[in-house]
Design a protein around this nucleic acid. Sequence first.
DNA 1: CAGGAACTGGCAGCAACCTTACAATTCTGT
DNA 2: ACAGAATTGTAAGGTTGCTGCCAGTTCCTG
Lengths: 220, 220
Amino acid sequence: MRLLLVEDDTLLAETLSDVLRLDNHHVTAIAEGDEARRLLSAPDHGQDLVLLDLNLPGCNGLEVLAALRQHDKETPVLILTARGAIEDRVQGLDLGADDYLAKPFALDELEARVRALLRRHTRSTALQVGNLDFDSLSQRFTLVGETLNLPPREQRLLGYLMRHAGEPIDKTRLAEEAFAGEALGDNAIEVYVHRLRRRLSGSGVELRTIRGLGYLLESV
Amino acid sequence: MRLLLVEDDTLLAETLSDVLRLDNHHVTAIAEGDEARRLLSAPDHGQDLVLLDLNLPGCNGLEVLAALRQHDKETPVLILTARGAIEDRVQGLDLGADDYLAKPFALDELEARVRALLRRHTRSTALQVGNLDFDSLSQRFTLVGETLNLPPREQRLLGYLMRHAGEPIDKTRLAEEAFAGEALGDNAIEVYVHRLRRRLSGSGVELRTIRGLGYLLESV
DNA sequence: CAGGAACTGGCAGCAACCTTACAATTCTGT
DNA sequence: ACAGAATTGTAAGGTTGCTGCCAGTTCCTG
């Protein structure tokens, strides 16, 4: 998932980013309120969750929140605030924040809240390539009616390829985006592609190699 | 029924818990506002009624209520507040509380209000997975016609899994949502899954494990 | 056809999960 | 209040299957 972290304390921002990346999220960190507001004002900002410090240089966190909520009521916002600023918190919930966390907080707790928010807001999306289906709610792949039971890494790979079906994706990009931040061996991707192919064989869905360009998922 | 009691006065909390337990309720007592909020923020917190003191450490009772009502308009909330704090009372009812009781109150009266609220809000919902049924009114499981008598923890686990049948749920999530706030050992969930499986064996309902993803309840 | 890139199968290590046993605790009826 | 039963927590050891790596092969491309 893509998280936007808006936090001016550089040290804290670093720590949080690290922790969240270990949970397999793609974290973008921003220190400036104005910049955050600009970014979130785009109709399609592409973030799945916003972590928002209220005490910001440039522009107050509540302003950022208000700007976001003007056109986007969906994306969950988790507010990070100093303990005791009660009116801020109430105001935040009023403005459409989804949860808040008082500083200082335990990292475990942050992770738990993020999990909960993402879970609550993740809408079920269905993908389809030929007769291969993916349902994001149950995280299940279905191939010609049969449920495909994939181990986590194959799942991540296939999920990514389905989301970009018809588009060739090279190994570098797969390593960076499908397996963001995870350690991988030299030919790990090749091995996973191979394992996926074995499962998909004879199903009408093909995982083609385009030399020099990458892999491509398509229905024959 | 499951009641959540949010009250910082330990002595009072003890007394109330005892009384309510004598009425055959499962009472969870919490003294911290923040903890209560966290617990109730889960989309599936599993409580049937919340008794809420307004004057709390950590986070105001009204905040707890606001956070709960953000996503859950159903669960009834009974506010406990000091006599005379009228504006609190009004605000509470505004925010979606269902009833209110001024301290000090007679225990009889508390019991009566709780009965009334539960009666008013308890709708019978029936769940079914294969030939396993659950009736939320009587809190009873029925398997192939036979009543299934489960200890509390297995009941909570199976109930949660039934409400999310067909969806794989990992151990973290089970600990956070099915057993919200309760302390659990490392492999507690595994043990409970094992015990449930023993009971379900040969009934046409299966509790499958999907490595790395979680557990999944389904009919074979 | 030479060299690099991608493919394949096997295997050892490891983490996730299962199972069992037993101790600690709580519930129950007398 | 007590004994016995049921439930719950914890630890230990076993099993499964995912994962990463390697070595050998095949396939492309210049």
